[in-house]
Write a protein that binds this DNA or RNA. Structure first.
Lengths: 208, 208
DNA sequence: TCTAATACGGAGGAACCCTCCGTTTGGCAA
DNA sequence: TTGCCAAACGGAGGGTTCCTCCGTATTAGA
């Protein structure tokens, strides 16, 4: 047993750190080309490492994906507070959502994974998920406080919807379509929700 | 060579047709439980068929998925014209989108595949894709003709967004969140799009 | 009943996953 | 510098799934 679980993890060996970087560098283009279905063995081979090494550094696919995109995720999150400081509330939200579309664009093949990143599905994604949700919450809270939008959905759902679009595998023109959707979503948030817009069919649905 | 390619395909043997039905019946619950990651071998075993038989009937996963849900897809498509006949344009659209959410709900695990179904990604999904796009086009065209909505997105993108939400793996409460999103989308479609809402940042983005 | 034409079964090669453990290496202490 | 050992590496191997291929069995029609 020892107390290994409590050991504060002495800093990693220099070679390990170098190798980790090399793995990340090699993994990124492969992930972008082949999507999250890229084989671990291929990545390891491409970096001239044994498969075991890859697994030691990144025990799961999610861990690898998160690490590869951690940096960009942080940049994206940072952009939120910058926009909040320089733009009107709704404009800031809109601009940031457009940035999110750009963010997805690099990783279209990966967007399934990133969708569940946004959704907070995986434990491994926890920190990235927090970054993203924190960013959009900052912007939506502000826009709501100003009275410009009325939140009837969870802000993260807006991003998940966009990620869905990225993921669907529409070919060229995807990005433009996603941008249009951003504007529809924003416009939808601006309108005052009708109180209890229940139709007879909606009641029926409750029992379906 | 012969002319086998042009032979109008004599009707399938009775046993083959029986077996096809049995495969579909067995596949459905398995797909629903395990998602599209369900193994072909498992399905074949569950139906007490050899793996070869399954592959002959459904050469790809997509073919199987489409066949399993073909029926429900047709029902969903049919509902569109019914709603168009009985509801005001926007109400019909909204109700149908809510039905689409229900449609997804049965197959949450499958929604990735169904997303690309909606997107028209796969050749195999061609006919199902047509059914779905035809249905929503009917409703959006009508709502646009009445002047109640202003289409700035491709209607199918609305569905893809919803499928994305289904796919993201949000747990309980998914359906309610999707319904809320439907209302945001509808509200967004109702507003008159601003003419050229370009910000400086948008120009910059063009070169990214 | 006979015989093509169809359909079925499942072995087998290939790809991938992930674990486990013997070997190698880096870095610290003497 | 040298020696030691925790840390890191490599890759064989057992397991799973994919999908093809072809010998065997079954059907439908003459």
């Amino acid at each position: 047993m020892k107390n290994e679980k409590f050991a504060p993890a002495r800093k990693p060996r220099a070679d390990a750190e170098r190798n980790r970087e090399r793995l990340l560098a090699v993994a990124k283009p492969i992930l972008e080309a082949k999507g999250s279905s890229a084989s671990f063995e291929e990545i390891a081979r491409a970096a001239s490492f044994g498969i075991g090494t890859l697994y030691r550094h990144f025990p799961t696919r999610d861990a690898l994906v998160e690490a590869v995109y951690r940096n960009e995720t942080e940049l994206l999150a940072a952009a939120a507070s910058r926009l909040a400081a320089t733009h009107a509330p709704v404009d800031a939200l809109r601009e940031w959502m457009l940035l999110f579309v750009e963010y997805l664009a690099t990783k279209r093949e990966m967007s399934g994974a990133l969708g569940s990143l946004a959704a907070g599905t995986s434990q491994l994604f926890a920190t990235s998920t927090e970054l993203i949700t924190g960013a959009i919450l900052l912007l939506t809270d502000r826009a709501q406080a100003s009275g410009d939008i009325h939140l009837t959905v969870q802000p993260i759902d807006l991003l998940i919807a966009l990620a869905g679009l990225a993921h669907a595998g529409i070919g060229t023109g995807w990005k433009e379509r996603a941008r249009q959707l951003v504007d529809v979503l924003i416009a939808g948030l601006r309108t005052v929700p009708r109180t209890v817009p229940r139709t007879p069919a909606a009641k029926r649905r409750r029992h379906a």
